[in-house]
Nucleic acid binder design. Structure first.
Lengths: 119, 119
DNA sequence: TCTCTATATCGTAAAATTACGATCATCGTA
DNA sequence: TACGATGATCGTAATTTTACGATATAGAGA
């Protein structure tokens, strides 16, 4: 952990958020939940519970991860909580990815492959 | 795990790869390694070991994850192994993300926020 | 107020990830 | 062929993640 910090430390705010989003979406369940949320425009926790077939507490936990990554937004709606995809979050994700690692893989690049020591 | 399959099952090939890429990049160390790799165009395992300050075996393990996600490519170069960012992989990632969840967050969308039960 | 519904949070067990040292395999060279 | 350098893989400990049931919280309605 201490070692990790030394390397991870110098990530910018945006990069940290991007990494957090990657982590959140790295789980297949959460990945799928995002789809569901996007398809259905919005839904309450119970809908995701039915969809995933997981325990309510588990789903709630996954929702928390997605929320903390800024990928979804929740709003208390009466006794339930209504979730939807965060437009700001998704836009951020798409924009950052598009700009990510611009130094490589340009259209007119080495074309493909890794050519070490091109001697 | 069995339950997970029922939900994750119906992910397309591309979606599975995308999720795998997310997972690989979700780790801050690997996230950082991708930067390093992109900045330096290419490098051998030892360079990453020096950069990350982690054990050689650990770095090798991280490289494997990135490789299996199709994000980098390794080529045996004499006694060493030369790694570089997979152009195909990164292009795939960027393209898929750009197309991802197209149903939401269009430019002329609800603008922002989650408005449940708009009654 | 009492209850029902819907969720978040807590505590905990199981599984996966991460990190390390040690070992094994390979290439280039003396 | 033996050696030194470079990395991949193995075995394992520590940490983190994932999932569950139980409990706590809050709104809506009888």
């Amino acid at each position: 952990m201490a070692k990790e910090m030394s390397i991870v430390q110098d990530l910018s705010e945006k990069e940290l958020r991007l990494a957090q989003m990657f982590k959140a979406l790295g789980n297949p369940i959460r990945f799928r939940m995002m789809h569901f949320l996007a398809e259905n425009r919005m839904c309450i926790t119970g809908d995701l519970v039915a969809f995933t077939n997981l325990a309510q507490s588990t789903v709630s936990q996954h929702l928390k991860v997605l929320r903390e990554a800024g990928l979804i937004e929740g709003e208390i709606e009466g006794p339930a909580t209504c979730y939807c995809v965060s437009e700001e979050g998704l836009r951020f994700l798409k924009d950052e990815i598009a700009r990510w690692l611009p130094n490589c893989c340009a259209v007119e690049d080495t074309a493909s492959g890794c050519s070490c020591s091109p001697a």
